[in-house]
Amino acid sequence: MSSPRKSESRAGLLFASPWFLGFLVFLAYPLLASIYYSFCDYSVLKAPVWVGLSNYRELWRDDVFWITLKNTGVYALFALPLGVVVSLALALMLNAKVRGLAFYRTAIYIPSLVPLVSLAVLWLWMFNGEYGLVNVGLKHLGLGSPPWLSDPAWSKPALVVMSLWGLGNAVVIYLAGLQDVPQEMLEAAELDGARSWDKTRHVTLPMISPVILFNVIMGIIGTLQIFTVPYVMFPGGVPARSTYFYAMYLFDNAFRFHKMGYACAMGWIMFLIIFVLTMVSLRASEKSVHYGGS
């Protein structure tokens, strides 16, 4: 190894050192501690006491754990694909060179800038069965007025609808990805007589498939962690635990029920689920994702 190589290595490690430290202190240690606590009776007020698999056993037969897991899964199952499709469609349209783009972009992006607490409170009111703007609108269209907030069958759909207003970030990332699609390829396709939908399907989508994958994975991680909005809108996951999500139950166990060990066990299960889902999406995408150049 030559001396410049050595000094480059040294510089490299030095430059990366904040992250090594951060990784060890804020990730590796908490992750390991979290495994340990998950086998303990622990409440932060008292020293952890080893209880073996007891937390996991309790989780296995904890109905609420399964309910929150199911709620989170159902929510993700609807919010995620809907989010991907809508944000992609919006991004494709926003990429068309039409007038007033700045306005459209801003309009679609700003709802994701509203603080989540305000957003939650605003929607709480928009969804009010009688006074709420949503139902007033639906009534005008003759679509009836569902009791969004008080009926377990409607509370999750309400959250899914709301999630669309937070798509701004995903749209922006898609838009950025679309800027990378070479114009020549689109024009070549046009010369071959491709219609705009064919162009989109055969040129644009494959070109931005890595971005789609990226958004899907970030979406999985984000949706499975849903917390703030239901925490503000539906304290305790009312009605009938229909909006009780995994992260809320985890938070409650840690800070309301003082069961930190139990919460850690839940955290690890969440991590494993996200890990598996990410791996599955990566594997599933291997064939369909097109990496330019490589």
């Binding site: 804020f26 990730l27 240690y29 908490p30 992750l31 501690a33 991680i221 840690a254 839940m266 955290g267």
Partner: peptide, 21 residues
């Protein structure tokens, strides 16, 4: 690669130990 993998660690997982830290 390890760095990218850490994006998968949700905050709630490390919430309790970090609070302890």
């Amino acid at each position: 690669a390890a760095t990218l993998a850490t994006m998968m660690v949700p905050f709630p997982v490390v919430m309790v130990p970090i609070f302890g830290l």
